[in-house]
Every structure is written in C-alpha cells, then in structure tokens.
Design a protein around this nucleic acid. Structure first.
Length: 464
RNA sequence: GGGAGUAUAGCCAAGUGGUAAGGCACAGGUCUGCAAAACCUUUAUUCCCCGGUUCAAAUCCGGGUACUCCCUCCA
C-alpha cells in the first residue's frame, strides 16, 4: 500500500508519491517568536517531527524547513514592553523554542529561515506579483487582489462570495476588496522597517512562507503542514500568492493538526489557561508529553488535563518497565535458542502498517504495547537467550526512534553507599528469613523514592 | 450566515461495510515469605438518537441532538 496521507486539499487519504523519487520536501509553519511556546505549539512540533522521522525510516531523504516569524505586530509590541529591539526579542524566544523542542525530542529542522533575513526575496516576490497584476500598491501598503485568483478558497473549501458575506473585520479603506490581504505594510513611526519600492515598511504575514518555501524547496514541494487554524486564511493566502506567481501547485499535500484544549476549554489569553512547555517541563517529563500527544490521531482535537497526563505517564512506564525487564535479564540469559526473529518481523510490519495509514501514531503505540506483552511473555518462558532479548530490545529501539520516544529508561546513576549497604543488609536478612527487617528496609528505601523488587534473578531497584 | 470536525466501556483512544485494537483505572487468579513487576481472566450483544440501503453497518445514505473549531492575531 505504501504511505497514505490525508490531504486537506482533496479531503481524502491519498497515496504518497513524492515529486522527486526518494526525497521528501516539507515545510511546516513555525512559531511567531514573541513568547515561550505553549503546548499548542508543541503538538505540530512533535507531530511533524514524527512525520519527518517516519519518512527517514522508510528510506526517504527528507528536507524539512520550518520558519520563524520574527517580524510582526506582536513582536513589535513585545519589544516596546521589554525596551529592546524586535530582533532581540526574536533571538531570545528562538533560543527558548530550541530548548523546549529539544527537550521534547524534536529533531532540528534543516533550515529555520527567519523573515528578517529574507526581506530581499520577499520584496522580489511582491514586485513580481504586482507586475503580473495580482497585487497593487495603496499608500505604502501592498495588497493581494484575491478576486484575480479564481481558486481562492480551494484549500478551506469556501467560495469567495460566502467569505465576503462573512467578513467581520472593519473595512479597510486602503483595500479594493475586504478579502484582499497585505503583502507589505508601511511602517508607522518608530517601527522596525526596511526600504522597499513602496517606501519604508515590513512584510505582511503570509508572504514570508511563500517566499521562503520557494527559496529552500522550490516552486512546488511535497508537504506543507501546520495547525488546523492556519488553514484559513494563512495557508489559503500562501497558495494564492505562490500559485499566482508560478502557475504550479505550491504543495502537493497539505496536512493540518488538530487543536489542544485545556480541561475541555480552548487555550486563550482571556481564560488565562495557557500552558507553556517550559513550565510543564518542570512537572512532567517531556517524554510523557510527547507520548500523550502521540496517543491520539493528529487530526483529532485532544484535551489536556492532569488526569490524562497521569494516564499517559503510567502507559509510558509500562513500556519502559518492559525494557528494563529485558535489560535485567540480558546478563543472566543463557540459552542460545532464538526463535524470536520471525515474531519481530510480524510486529515491525504491523507498526509500519499503522504508520503508513496517515501516520496513525495511536495505532502504532498499540503495536508497541502488543510488543510489550510479547516481550514479557518471552521472559516468562524457559528458553531465554541474550540473542532473543536483543531481538525485543532492537524493535523497541526501532519503534521508539520513529516516534522520537526515549523508551529506554535513563541510565541509572549509582546509589550512594548508605543505600547500597541497606540493600546488602536486606539480602542477608532475607536469606536468614528475617522478613521483618527486610520489609523495614524496603519501606525505608521506598520513602527515599527507591522501589525494590525481588526477582528470581536477584534483587533490582528503580526510582519511583 | 458560510465552512470544518467530533460523539465508541469508569477514563483515554484506534477502527470507517464482515461481526468492537490498545492503554489507564478497577476486580479475581497465578507467581511471591509478603510485595513489586509480569502473566492469565473478567469488563461495550454494542459504537449519541431516529429512519433507510445491504445477506451483513460503529462503519454507507437521509434526518435529528450535543459539543468544538475556523471565517479577526492564533498551532
């Protein structure tokens, strides 16, 4: 079957056929860097990272571009607030973005183009649109003439008449038509600006993605991704700009991820319920957040609450425990019999089948859990070999790396001597069937956050 | 007004024509000195409601109901 992708443009799942055999070019709308990212920003970051990893896993050479919007109204306001320049604000929050996404296990994009570094390309793009009659200058601003582009609305499946009827914004006198959107905005006094044929100003929001994707990926590329809310008007406008200029489809597949609600409510400034990644990282392991995000289909909305995070945490722990069970047995395993390869192949196929189906990470995780059961059952059997254990570990590693999940428990740091001594003492006590003392020690260590387990292969411990 | 989406067990969540995955929680059992971990078993005659198509529907069609999002900056 191969990889199937749900394409917003056609509203159907389609087989993925790359523009250029063996390669995938993708562009994902990145954040406006005026603040720390919240968990709503984390969803596309994590999800499209999985898309990228999966393509790589399937042998494609991927070029992954994600922009930073570093010039816009929100940045200008923030800069005033902080008494620094717009670009200093951007630098600061780009660093924060990198820290947060790195913690979430997101691989770095190949290029993170910034608007402020691409003004020349943007001006050039706009000039060409004007030359072709798709844009017009109006007292220092430049607008895109939407009625010149008959396909306007094809992505969000709305037609121009209905859009016009629904326009809620105050009519801007500069525009010929309320649906026209800004390509270039003239600078107000004191604002950051660049020189242009239309005077001092800065790019409108949508043009950056058209200009920068074209620069790095060409006039047509494979996949354009972003949040569901960007579908209209942002992506619609990108299509209008790019396709008006080039006459070719901008992207072949458009992918949109669903929203995150907090306790069943939309995240919004007025409700004050924004959850920042940097804050949540202090309370829950980033891996748990990542696991949580991947436990539902990317196009469905998900709800965020403490209770659901707790569920995710416990689920992830089941997988990690299975792996440490394998590690624990690895040294002791003796039998040389290994009949697990066939089983591994079956589960690998199931995993690929799940991911092929429009990146169904929820299904893929279900396969990981089935592998957990297989693994635990294996360890229960008579014939456990190091080779067999390795077969289980290998597929865990393989699936984990596609999902970007660190399934292997973190390297256990050494216990301090006092605790080491207590464990020793307890082992002795158990030998002498002094269970009272043994239980005492176990309780004591439990208070220190260390869980002791007695296994046929000897005692083992883990942190709570 | 226009567009899009969601409704599946206590909770989360796949499945989109062939007779309900997986996880969390809960209960019983096995193992254990007791635990933990693990394994086994049980847990939705049924997928928001009402009609229809079909040998067969959670899945398709029609009509409702509820909730969410977009059309204004937004992931």
């Amino acid at each position: 079957m191969g990889i199937q992708i749900y394409n917003t443009l056609t509203r159907k799942k389609e087989p993925f056929v790359p523009l250029h055999s063996g390669t995938v070019s993708m562009y994902v709308c990145g954040p406006t860097v005026y603040n720390y990212i919240h968990i709503g920003n984390a969803r596309p970051a994590i999800f499209f990272d999985v898309v990228r990893r999966y393509f790589e896993y399937r042998g494609y050479e991927v070029t992954f571009i994600q922009n930073f919007t570093d010039v816009d109204d929100k940045l200008i306001r923030k800069a005033e607030e902080l008494g620094v320049t717009v670009l200093e604000v951007a630098d600061r929050f780009i660093r924060a973005f990198e820290e947060d996404t790195q913690a979430l296990g997101v691989k770095e994009a190949h290029v993170h183009p910034r608007v402020s570094n691409h003004i020349e390309e943007i001006i050039d793009f706009i000039q060409k649109l004007i030359n072709k009659g798709y844009a017009y200058e109006s007292s220092g601003d430049v607008y895109f003439r939407t009625e010149k582009f008959p396909e306007y609305g094809k992505l969000s499946h709305q037609n121009i008449e209905e859009l016009q009827a629904g326009v809620r914004i105050a009519v801007n006198e500069q525009k010929d038509n309320p649906l026209d959107f800004a390509l270039w905005k003239s600078a107000k006094p004191g604002e950051i600006y660049w020189e242009s044929p239309w005077g001092k100003g800065r790019p409108g929001w949508h043009i950056e993605c058209s200009a920068m994707s074209m620069k790095y990926l060409g006039e047509s590329f494979d996949i354009h991704g972003g949040g569901h809310d960007l579908m209209f008007p942002h992506h619609e406008n990108e299509i209008a700009q790019s396709e008006a200029l080039t006459g070719h489809p901008m992207a072949k597949y458009w992918m949109h991820n669903g929203y995150i609600n907090i306790d069943n409510e939309k995240m919004s400034k007025s409700l004050g319920n924004f959850v920042l990644v940097k804050d949540i990282r202090e309370k829950i392991a980033p891996q748990v957040l990542r696991f949580f995000m991947l436990s539902a289909h990317y196009r469905h909305p998900i709800n965020f609450s403490e209770d659901l995070i707790e569920q995710a945490k416990n689920g992830l722990e089941r997988i990690q425990t299975a792996i440490s069970n394998l590690r624990h047995r690895q040294v002791a395993a003796t039998s040389e019999v290994n009949e697990e390869n066939e089983k591994q192949e079956i589960y690998r196929k199931k995993f690929i089948e799940a991911m092929d189906n429009d990146f169904n990470t929820a299904d893929a995780l279900a396969i990981v859990f089935e592998w957990v059961r297989e693994s635990n059952q294996y360890l229960l059997g008579e014939k456990v070999s190091n080779q067999g254990v390795q077969v289980y570990l290998d597929l865990f590693e393989e699936m984990g790396s596609v999902l970007g999940l660190q399934l292997e428990p973190a390297e256990e740091e050494l216990l301090d001597q006092e605790i080491e001594a207590l464990i020793q003492e307890r082992t002795e006590a158990r030998k002498q069937r002094n269970f009272q003392r043994a239980d005492e020690i176990r309780d004591l260590l439990m208070e220190k956050g260390i869980i002791l387990e007695d296994t046929p292969q000897g005692i083992r411990w883990r942190r709570k």
